[in-house]
Structure formats: structure tokens, C-alpha cells
């Protein structure tokens, strides 16, 4: 059998695909961060907690109200996005004039509070969310067994990612958003209500995190700290892609998922570190990130 770097080509293909699946989570989360940073200049450290809330709201909906997965896929981002709107109105709004550091501290503190509350209520060992009936089972691809749900995750997140990219880069609404990033006062002079736009953008970024949370619920245990480990990696992804770059965050997310996946085969012990090594290298060579514009 032919081999790639000493492992059979079939196993190698399987690992590539697995990497792509995990990469789609990175992509969708870093996309939300990039959107928020692009317009609000806020480094949203609550992102991991909002991803966790997305999963929890889906779980609660099923447990207490009998809301199924498909409805949760819409409702949960909506509910969590609304909490984002409240946070933006009550807290973040007051920080735009200040240094980045204040936004970072506030959102980090909020993340700790939210995680603490969920831990108090639901404990640490996690809750199970079943895979929806339609997506149960899997397909034998010859080189690997692919659970249908994982395939769905890739498709759903790619659709959402490129949909978001299209809206921001190719539509009039997106043009307003980009204009708001460049010069909010001028945009306001054209009659656009910039503060509302900013609020909704934050709500949308948060909703993306919650969407990823719902996608993750059937795969991982729904657990109050499920986001806190992930968010650090996702930040590294954003830094590598270039802060605020929409396209960069999508491509980097997918790419790093693959790199991490392959590290798990060749040197598993380093798989938790490899993303940060790449981040350090990228910062040395291109401080603005792979797809970022030099400031």
C-alpha cells in the first residue's frame, strides 16, 4: 500500500478529513471574533462562554420545552445573540473610547461569571445531547467511517461562513459595515444609524458563536467550561489570519484544523501547542497576520 510520511494513504486521508471537521469549528468561531473586532474594536473574550451558552440553550430547550435540534439551530443563536445585544448596550458601549485592554478585561470577566453560573447550576461533568434522528449513523468511505453528523457540521459551517463573507464583502449592507469600520462619523453623516448597526453586529457575532455551540452539542459533552479551552485556540487562529480579516479567519480556521489534525498523528503530544507555534512564527514574519493589512 502506498504511504505518506510513513502512514498508509487511507489513514492519512481520514485524518485530513477529521482536521477539516475540527477546522470548521475554528472557522465559524474565529469568523464571529473577526466580525466583532472589525467593527467594534473589541476583543471579545466572552466568545467561548457564548459558544457554551449556545450549546446549553439547545440542551435546555430539548429538556424543558421539547424543542428539537433544527429549531434550536435557529432559536439558540437568536436567544444568545439577544443576550449579546444587552451586553453591548449596557457595558461594551461605554468602552469604545478606551484602550482595547478594557474591552478585553470586561469580556473576560463576563466569561468567568457566566461559566461560574452554569457550573453552579449544572455541575462540571457535562450533559448529553443526542444526535438528531435524521443525521444519525454514518457512511463507510472506504478510507474511513464518516459519521453523517460530522459531514453535516462541515457543510453547515461552510455555508454559514461563506454566507457571512458574501454579505459583508459583496452586499450593500456589508458596504455600510465596512464603511462603519473605516469612518463611523462620516457614515453617520449619510444618515445611517451607526450605534444600532454596531449593536446588531455584536449580536450577530455572538449568534455565530452560539450556532457553533449548537453544532457542537451532539459531539461533545455540554459542559460549562467547553468554551474556555477552545477560545484560546480560536484567538490564535484570529491572530494568524489577521485581526478583523473575514476571509482570513475562515481560511485560517480550516487550515489550522488540518494542521492540528495531522499533528495528532505524527506527534500527538504537540497537538495542543502546534497552533501557538505557528502563531509565534507568523507574528515574527508578518505581524499583521497572513491576511491582515499592515496598519
Amino acid at each position: 500500500m502506498s504511504e505518506v510520511f510513513g502512514i498508509p494513504i487511507q489513514a492519512f486521508l481520514g485524518q485530513l478529513l477529521i482536521g477539516l471537521i475540527n477546522g470548521s469549528f475554528y472557522a465559524i468561531l474565529s469568523l464571529g471574533l473577526a466580525v466583532i473586532f472589525g467593527l467594534l474594536n473589541i476583543i471579545n473574550f466572552t466568545h467561548g462562554a457564548q459558544y457554551m451558552m449556545g450549546a446549553f440553550v439547545a440542551w435546555m430547550g430539548l429538556k424543558y420545552l421539547g424543542i428539537n435540534y433544527w429549531a434550536a439551530l435557529l432559536l439558540s443563536p437568536l436567544v444568545v445573540g439577544l443576550t449579546g445585544v444587552v451586553i453591548e448596550r449596557l457595558c461594551l458601549r461605554r468602552l469604545y473610547q478606551l484602550d482595547h485592554l478594557y474591552g478585553l478585561l470586561l469580556t473576560f470577566g463576563l466569561a468567568l461569571v457566566v461559566e461560574g453560573l452554569f457550573r453552579q447550576g449544572y455541575g462540571i461533568s457535562g450533559l448529553s445531547y443526542p444526535v438528531p434522528k435524521l443525521l444519525q449513523g454514518g457512511e463507510n468511505l472506504g478510507f474511513m467511517y464518516l459519521p453523517i453528523y460530522r459531514a453535516w457540521v462541515v457543510v453547515a459551517s461552510l455555508v454559514v461562513c461563506f454566507g457571512t463573507w458574501y454579505v459583508i464583502e459583496r452586499t450593500k449592507l456589508g458596504a455600510y459595515l465596512r464603511a462603519g469600520t473605516e469612518n463611523p462619523r462620516l457614515l453617520q453623516a449619510f444618515g445611517i444609524n451607526v450605534p444600532v448597526m454596531v449593536t446588531l453586529t455584536y449580536g450577530f457575532g455572538v449568534a455565530l458563536a452560539a450556532f457553533a455551540g449548537v453544532l457542537a452539542a451532539p459531539i461533545y459533552q455540554v459542559n460549562p467550561v467547553m468554551g474556555s479551552n477552545l477560545v484560546i485556540v480560536v484567538f490564535a487562529v484570529v491572530v494568524i489570519g489577521g485581526m478583523g480579516s473575514i476571509f482570513g479567519s475562515i481560511v485560517t480556521g480550516l487550515g489550522l484544523g488540518v494542521v492540528e489534525g495531522l499533528t495528532k498523528v505524527f506527534y500527538p503530544e504537540a497537538s495542543a501547542v502546534v497552533v501557538f507555534v505557528i502563531m509565534a512564527l507568523v507574528l515574527l514574519v508578518r505581524p499583521a497576520g497572513l491576511f491582515g493589512r499592515e496598519a
Binding site: I18, N22, Y220, M226, K264
Partner: peptide, 8 residues
């Protein structure tokens, strides 16, 4: 969090 690669 993700064990799919190790499991394979």
C-alpha cells in the same frame, strides 16, 4: 475535547 483523530 476532540478524540476523533486518536480514535481512528
Amino acid at each position: 475535547a476532540d478524540f476523533s483523530s486518536f480514535l481512528m
